[in-house]
Design a protein around this nucleic acid. Structure first.
Lengths: 197, 197
DNA sequence: GTCTATATCGAGATAGAC
DNA sequence: GTCTATCTCGATATAGAC
């Protein structure tokens, strides 16, 4: 493939990614994306045969983005606890986007569960990447049992915070919950009083 | 209004309620609803002038339904702790619907946050009804500070469980999280070790 | 009240010129 | 590769007969 065509393809994916997050998948039309990228609707179909195909490309791009981000964190922080704090602080860094549009992963899964069940199993892989990374960090911290359950629990806690922050458009709620979540990390994961779960 | 017309109106609202939950709001057409109720699309507009109007009616009906359910629980259980267990067990009772369609409140708010922001403030009132009821139960249990924060935290925990259960279509996750949530209720609310939050 | 048209719009998708 | 038509479908909504 030529360099120019490949670059345009990436620009389409990036535009679709953002619009799907802000407006939802079904609610975003080809025209919306085409307007952002400044191409015609017709040209669209040279790069993607269907809307499903764009969604697939967006999911793949997001997964690659998450993996790159986690690699960066691993390099930046030697201490697994610092990495986990960095994960929680992601909520603070993205709090305005979360207030307005929720979680890019969670809200997409919620939408796909209602419309196209078939693609849900692709979308939830985004969660799986985070889950597997969390499991590694927990193990490094010395947690030996229920590591997977703990990682899923962690993800659910974050999703709950995001859903409520978004529903009430309330960043203060997010901020206070972040503090509690760090407390949970310190008390239940790093220094558990008894066997967990 | 005549009795027959009023009854049909209620049937339309009930059908819309269920379809909005299963398929999402935007993704549900007048035809879908009309098919269930067995009326023509045209007849629809005699009862509701627009789709927004149906959504408003559905939200009102859901709020009335939640209030009736909570009244029932209050009557059935004298002990606030039993009432809160009943609230948590709602997850188990509805686990198959949750696996398939998520939370009727949470998923609607998530959708409206992306499409029609204007109606989000109506939709999140459904959460508020639960929140206010939770606050009453916590106070009855002797909790004196951060009652509102605790109620919001509780709701977020439930939302997180539902979002992940739905995304992974995994009822086992829901079941194990229900146990943990009851443990949280016992340890942190009923017998808090120290001042909370 | 309930129905059968019908109007209007915007969506996804295709064909073919350049 | 990118464009301008154009097709087809299904959505909300309206008009008017019964």
């Amino acid at each position: 493939m030529g360099n120019k065509g490949e670059a345009l393809r990436q620009r389409i994916i990036a535009a679709a990614d953002e619009l799907f997050y802000q407006q939802g998948y079904e609610n975003t039309s080809f025209s919306d994306i085409a307007d952002v990228v400044n191409i015609s609707r017709g040209n669209f179909y040279y790069h993607f045969k269907s809307k499903d195909e764009i969604l697939n490309a967006v999911i793949d791009a997001r997964i690659a983005g998450i993996e790159a981000m986690l690699d960066e964190w691993d390099e930046k922080f030697a201490d697994p606890l610092q990495r986990l704090y960095c994960y929680i602080d992601m909520l603070l860094r993205a709090q305005e986007e979360i207030r307005l549009h929720g979680c890019p992963i969670g809200s997409l899964c919620t939408e796909l569960a209602k419309t196209s069940h078939a693609m849900l199993s692709d979308a939830n892989k985004m969660f799986t990447v985070f889950r597997d990374w969390l499991m590694v960090q927990f193990k490094l911290l010395g947690v030996e049992s229920n590591v997977k359950k703990m990682a899923m629990h962690f993800i659910a806690r974050v999703q709950g915070i995001v859903t409520v922050t978004n529903a009430f458009e309330d960043k203060e709620f997010l901020q206070q919950e972040v503090k509690q979540l760090k407390k949970w990390l310190d008390d239940e994961v790093v220094f558990p009083k008894s066997s967990n779960q």
